[in-house]
C-alpha cells in the first residue's frame, strides 16, 4: 500500500516536472513574455513624416556599472544604441530615425541589454503622411467678397421692382389704348 502511494506521489511529481519543462520550452513563444519593459514614444505614427521614435528600456542595473542596450527593428530603422537616460536613471534610451517610405503596418522593436536581458515593443505605422494642404475655408468672410449672391442672378428686390414697373407700364398703355 505504502509503495503504491509512494509511486503515485513520484508519478505525479514526475508528470508535473515533465509538463512544466515542456511549458518552459514553450514559454518564449507565449505572447507578452519578456524580461524588460520597452517603451516607444510615439508608438504610432505616419510614414513620411520624418518622425523620430524615442525608445526606452528598463535594463537592470548592476551596481555602478553603466548598462547599455541595442534596439533593432529589421525594417523600421537602423540599430540604435540605448544609453543611460539623462532624465530617468532607471532606464536607457535612444532615438531612432524611421526609414523612408515605410509601408504602413506593425513593426517589432527588439531590445537587448548588455546584461543579455531582452524585451520588445510594437511600432505601428498607421499610414502615409498626407501631402496636400487642407482646404479649410469657403471664403464667405474673405476681404473683397462683398456680394455673396451668385453673379448674374438678379436679387429678389430687383425682380420685384422690375415686375412693378412692367406692370405699371402695361396698365398705363392699356388705358391709353382703350380710349
Amino acid at each position: 500500500m505504502k509503495r503504491a502511494r509512494q509511486r503515485f506521489a513520484t508519478g505525479l511529481v514526475v508528470g508535473l516536472i515533465a509538463g512544466v519543462s515542456l511549458l518552459g520550452l514553450a514559454a518564449p513563444a507565449a505572447a507578452g513574455s519578456q524580461e524588460i519593459k520597452v517603451t516607444l514614444t510615439p508608438a504610432k505614427t505616419l510614414s513620411g513624416a520624418g518622425q523620430d521614435i524615442k525608445i526606452t528600456a528598463e535594463c537592470p542595473k548592476t551596481g555602478d556599472t553603466q548598462v547599455r542596450a541595442l534596439a533593432t527593428s529589421s525594417l523600421a530603422f537602423e540599430p540604435v544604441n540605448l544609453e543611460p537616460d539623462a532624465e530617468n536613471p532607471l532606464v536607457v534610451s535612444g532615438v531612432a530615425e524611421l526609414s523612408k517610405n515605410l509601408v504602413p503596418g506593425t513593426y517589432t522593436v527588439n531590445v537587448t541589454c548588455e546584461s543579455n536581458h531582452t524585451g520588445e515593443a510594437e511600432l505601428e505605422i498607421l499610414g502615409t503622411v498626407p501631402t496636400k494642404a487642407p482646404k479649410a475655408g469657403g471664403g464667405g468672410t474673405a476681404a473683397g467678397v462683398a456680394d455673396n449672391d451668385d453673379e448674374g442672378a438678379p436679387t429678389l428686390g430687383v425682380v420685384l421692382v422690375a415686375g412693378l414697373l412692367v406692370g405699371a407700364a402695361v396698365f398705363l398703355l392699356r388705358r391709353r389704348g382703350l380710349r
Binding site: 513520484t10 508519478g11 505525479l12 511529481v13 514526475v14 508528470g15 508535473l16 515533465a18 515542456l22 511549458l23
Partner: peptide, 12 residues
C-alpha cells in the same frame, strides 16, 4: 506509472 505521469502532465 504511465497513468500517473500522464495525470501530472495534463494537470500542468
Amino acid at each position: 506509472w504511465t497513468r500517473i505521469a500522464a495525470a501530472g502532465l495534463v494537470t500542468a
